[in-house]
Amino acid sequence: MNTLLTDIGQYITFRLGDELFAINVAQVREVLELPPVTKVPTAPDYMRGVVNVRGKAIPVVDLRRKFGLPPTPDTVHSRIVVMELDLDGEPTVIGGIADSVHEVIELEPGQINPPPRIALRWRTDLIQGMGRRGDDFIIILDLARVFSAEDAALVKEPSALATVPA
């Protein structure tokens, strides 16, 4: 389904609520502790603000809100995953706030399944595949799609806390 999945890939795993997600390391520049975030007025809720990453102001997305999960307060485990994405041909640096960041794992193509079509809480078009690790499943995100989509609520059923489109 995607050329990225044909080779052994390294992925960074992070957690939002009780769900485990993974992003290809090629798209991750660094993982930082949560610095003070400057809010940008009148921006959508899921846009948390901007942070200073080595002298550059980087936009930060609250991934929970972006995906339509209920918000929780930041904890000592909260991290910013600084990603470098190619959005519509434009290289873009963006930070995503995750509840916690875990480890780098390797997944062979055989360990990745296409997203199941039925009985899933999650929107399949934003998911690149499901990684299998022991008995656990890890959701591998298609980040370019996530950040190009206006409304990227991953959870299908409408929730009071779903993102408000810009």
Binding site: N52, A57, P59, T92
Partner: peptide
Amino acid sequence: LGRFYEHVGLVSGATILGDGRVAL
């Protein structure tokens, strides 16, 4: 501020202050 804030009409950019904070 980049593409994610391009519709925000009240601020036109950001700058890093002496103490490392970001000011709009």
